[in-house]
Amino acid sequence: MLLDLTTHLGRISLKNPVLVASGTFGYGEEYAELIDLNQLGGIITKSVTLKPREGSFPPRLTETPAGMLNAIGLENPGVELFLKEKLPFLSQFDTKIIVNIAGEKEDEFCQVAEKLSKAKTIDALEVNLSCPNLRRGGYILGKDPEVVFSLIQTLKRVTDLPLLAKLTAAVSEPTEIARAAEEAGAEALSLINTLPGMAINIQTRRPRLGNITGGLSGPAIRPIAVRVVWEVARAVRIPILGMGGIMKGDDALEFILAGASAVAVGTANFVDPTTPGQTIKQIENYLKKNKIRRFRELIGKVET
């Protein structure tokens, strides 16, 4: 049986439904030494901001049960250097390039989007509306449906690139924010970002992160992510890119059955760089075993 793994995030056509999540893959250079980037459905870059950012004071990372907390603080070389030094490398591969953008103010997001729009090899932008480590920026912005609506709408005016809105699940009604992003013209939704968390060293009585709090990722957050994808999928018509603790094909399939049109592997890249490739194979095996030819038939097919 010839399988059809293709899927869409709005105007973005993917050859398969497995991408890699922002912040867990850098700009591709390091992992290219270990795996074939051409096998990926897409690469979502680490956040790019208008100006270079030094990032948070260390320690920036700590391990937690079935997960990890991070407060990297969006360390990145800034949009100019990204375009000059990082994008050309990524552009060699046969995969979709989605650039994650972040900022503290609407104007910053817009300037970054404008600069990126001039590049020919970018397929979409993912708007970081949910970084828990940017106090003045995305996280607060992303909790208010009106602000999300306004930001996406403004961005639509400055760029023709499809926009994925990356939303937080750390609100009581993720569906409200999702609807706001949809109404403003987002192409798709990325769900979910890390969840705010904290860990304390009881010997030193100090927080384990220099930033005090950080973003929780890994299998620990997966059931929350699956639930949010399921809720949002029923509330909007635009496609969802599901993520949160995917370690293998079975996990990816949960998101897909819950309503995600594609998935992104994040923290698992650190644990085992072969995870995205294996996830694709495991999805293929599941399709074969269940005699489903087209991957897209699985989307949202959870029976409740």
Partner: peptide, 17 residues
């Protein structure tokens, strides 16, 4: 030494000043 994530320079979790 420092707690590490990826170990290959991607995550920027193990930085020191």
């Amino acid at each position: 030494e420092k707690t590490m994530g990826c170990g290959i320079g991607v995550c920027r979790g193990c930085v020191i000043k």
